[in-house]
Design a protein around this nucleic acid. Structure first.
Lengths: 197, 197
DNA sequence: TGTACATCAGTGAACGCGCGTTCACTGATGTAC
DNA sequence: TGTACATCAGTGAACGCGCGTTCACTGATGTAC
């Protein structure tokens, strides 16, 4: 049990920076997320974070990775073992809810700035992508093109999330958002285009 | 015919700012888009743009509105009178191509910063939204829930655009991107969920 | 148990930067008579 | 056609800001003997 307000040697500055970053994100959006602000919030000198993060991008990447984990957990909680199209709808609703509950985090997770080559981020997105593919395979075992369908499902919910986040679709009423997501997923799965061809 | 390098009284500084902003966007991404940079590029003092734009946000909004118009034109050019599911696929491909051709513009168009209440932007997005709805109604005249389907289609292509833009889907090969978009749209329109219920 | 020392985490002053915006101004334009 | 004047577009100096990052440093910790 460390003293609550010990000076010097913070104890877990790495974690504290992460937490501070998350708080700033919730309060000020991604714009307010500077290394200096994080240090300030963690009660530490502006340069202390450099002991734990190479630079600003490194912090952002860590935040994004954490976000991926949380999103995966949140979706899993929405339906532990999705096996039917309706289960998939529940997961879709959860995806959009997560985005609207943590808008700035979501932007950090899916925004260009973090360099695409980063290993940590690449691993996190790969895991996530695999989750979506498995999800679609379980809910549509007989699909002709499972990979394409997985991509489409991800894109669909991702698009719904961002259209709400960016104000193209009205996000003021959470219940209405849920309904819209359900309706969109349902519409897409029951509309038949011309076959084969 | 105005002199090419007339000093003072630019002639069309408003338009020049817009053009400069677009160039900066293509070159440096949205990060490089400052009022000062725009003024610099337009060959004018840092404060001259204030004659034509109330502030930075006003410029951004103008750029975004222009973008909406161009996107609409680009989609219309992809298929002037879409009337079948396959035509819709062509438009979907065009949407993603536009995003990848003008990544920073696309982000400005669909990013939070511009205040959601702005009339010009609201009008532009409403027009666009109506276009998508009409598009879906023409390609799926018998759809049960045309509005929901329109939302879903927009979300699908929007999601595909951003997943490519943000590196979640590999965008290095344009032909592969086109194919992926086509496959995703096709997969979604030929997969049947459980009906009614 | 006690001391010497290497290691490590955090400090604080300083750098140079570009930004948005304000202000009082001045040069060019066009209109009224 | 010529002059007086109002209007407008652009200037340039200045403000205060917060940022990322560097550097040489110092205080705390833990290990070896």
């Amino acid at each position: 049990m460390p003293k609550p307000s010990s000076p010097y040697h913070h104890g877990d500055l790495r974690g504290a920076c992460l937490r501070a970053a998350r708080e700033l994100l919730e309060e000020d959006g991604s714009a307010g997320l500077s290394l200096r602000a994080v240090a300030r919030r963690a009660g530490v000198s502006p340069t202390a974070p450099y002991r734990h993060y190479a630079d600003r991008d490194a912090l952002l990447t860590a935040v994004a990775s954490e976000g991926y984990g949380e999103l995966a957990g949140f979706l899993a909680a929405a339906h532990p073992a999705p096996a039917a199209p309706d289960d998939l709808t529940a997961v879709a609703v959860a995806y959009v809810r997560f985005a609207l509950a943590h808008p700035a985090l979501f932007r950090v997770m899916f925004a260009e700035p973090c360099d695409p080559g980063d290993a940590e981020r690449a691993a996190a997105t790969a895991t996530f992508s695999a989750y979506v593919t498995a999800l679609v395979q379980n809910t549509f075992p007989g699909a002709t093109a499972p990979d394409a369908l997985a991509t489409a499902v991800w894109a669909l919910v991702h698009g719904l999330a961002f259209l709400h986040l960016d104000g193209e679709l009205d996000a003021t009423d959470p219940a209405a958002v849920d309904a819209r997501v359900r309706a969109a997923v349902h519409a897409v799965l029951t509309t038949r285009g011309q076959d084969a061809r």
